[in-house]
Write a protein that binds this DNA or RNA. Structure first.
Lengths: 228, 228
DNA sequence: CCCACGCTTCGGTGGTGACCGAAGCATGTC
DNA sequence: GACATGCTTCGGTCACCACCGAAGCGTGGG
């Protein structure tokens, strides 16, 4: 069965402490830069780069370049499922490991390196598409004239951010829907913080949507019914 | 996260072609002896022995000694799930691998090295327990006087099989219920063949239950409602 | 335009582990 | 009791690969 070779290859990628560390660090759906993953694994940048390249080539991770950083994330729900299944076995049946699922705390809103992710990030992205403010095109998003106007009215000056990663889409495996990254995504996040629509919770990733935020999101973006 | 070490250890066990071959060969719930697994993997007995010992020690496989053979099988549904999850990733998303589930052909009845397994094996074991013919005790089964009588009436002389592996229980991960192995299990299988209650199907593992078999199983054992 | 920073590529080193042959042990068979 | 069979243990060999330092490349900031 030549199949066993492929199985062994995939499992072998996970079967190395440094790589396992990196994969587990990405387990909550975040995208992390190579350098940080190297630190997680306790190895130097060259070694990490080698590992990450192999993980990407084999389809376990995907990466996007953003400036001089390169963000890696889990490639698909299938990969997440596999990692979870390995964790279940690794934990031994009795102790009954906590699952490799996204923390409920993070499900609603979280930051994905400076921009909004989770259900909130997806909802905002959807709203902007519905309003013809942005148009998705692969992994980039084009901000339409209506979008410039809309965001400007809301207090985000998108006009004078000339840098390359203008507006990108970003998908993590836990939500299978895109949210907005890039400079525009970062600006939206910043504005939400200014308006106190969201506030950072516990650690720096989880976001709490405030009462004002719920009202504002409904009034400005037409977003209703976000899970509590 | 020390957890990553354990994850890597488990995944690393699968991440070796020889071991992956052996695990996949056991994927349909059978129990196979070490020598046969060595052949599956294309390695010599010493190497296979080493691998199998590690797989058992880590809880991926369990083994029973039976005479001078040692039968290995998948230790738990969790392990099977993990292997399946790895196969899904290994196959790449597009080709959509056939699942690591028991062949439906084998679900109803199959042989587990000379004795009956699958739903049929479990049903017979249940019936004998219900009739107070056997009592399970860990991985051995005691045949009660009523059982000697019952089996003798049915045409199986259990009295003069004095060998060690008299009657054992055997659980494969696909059915989570025991069936009978050992000399008694083998004799039952043999008698079913003599009576033409079952016949071998396609390859040598899948069993077909004949019309006479359904009638007989109901009349003698009180077994009804086996899936078609 | 130059420097700082993050990532990648390149060689070279060291340790781990897969593998086998030979010998040993247990079990079943004649 | 002697032999065959199946598995295990033991040593030794070899290949692979994780790892790092140094150098190279591209991007962003001053």
């Amino acid at each position: 069965m030549s199949n066993a070779l492929e199985v062994a290859q995939i499992a072998g990628l996970v079967g190395e402490p440094a790589r396992a560390n990196m994969l587990l660090a990405l387990g909550d759906g975040r995208a992390l830069p190579a350098g940080e993953l190297a630190a997680c694994a306790g190895i130097t940048a060259p070694t990490a780069s080698e590992h990450l390249a192999r993980l990407e080539q084999s389809g376990l991770l995907i990466s996007i370049r953003q400036g001089r950083h390169r963000y890696y994330r889990i490639a698909s729900p299938e990969v997440a499922t596999m990692l979870e299944a390995v964790m279940v076995v690794a934990a031994g049946n009795p102790p009954r490991m906590e699952r490799f699922r996204i923390d409920p705390e993070l499900q609603l809103g979280r930051t994905c390196y400076n921009h909004l992710a989770g259900q909130l990030g997806v909802a905002i992205c959807d709203a902007l598409i519905r309003k013809n403010c942005v148009v998705l095109d692969g992994d980039v998003a084009h901000v339409m004239p209506a979008g410039l106007q809309f965001l400007s009215n809301w207090g985000v000056d998108v006009g004078r951010m000339g840098k390359h990663p203008y507006c990108r889409t970003c998908i993590d495996w836990s939500e299978r829907r895109p949210h907005l990254g890039g400079a525009v995504g970062i600006a939206i996040h910043k504005r939400c913080l200014e308006l106190k629509w969201v506030e950072h919770h516990l650690d720096s990733r989880a976001l709490k949507i405030t009462r004002a935020g719920r009202l504002g999101l409904e009034r400005v973006f037409g977003i209703i019914g976000l899970a509590r």
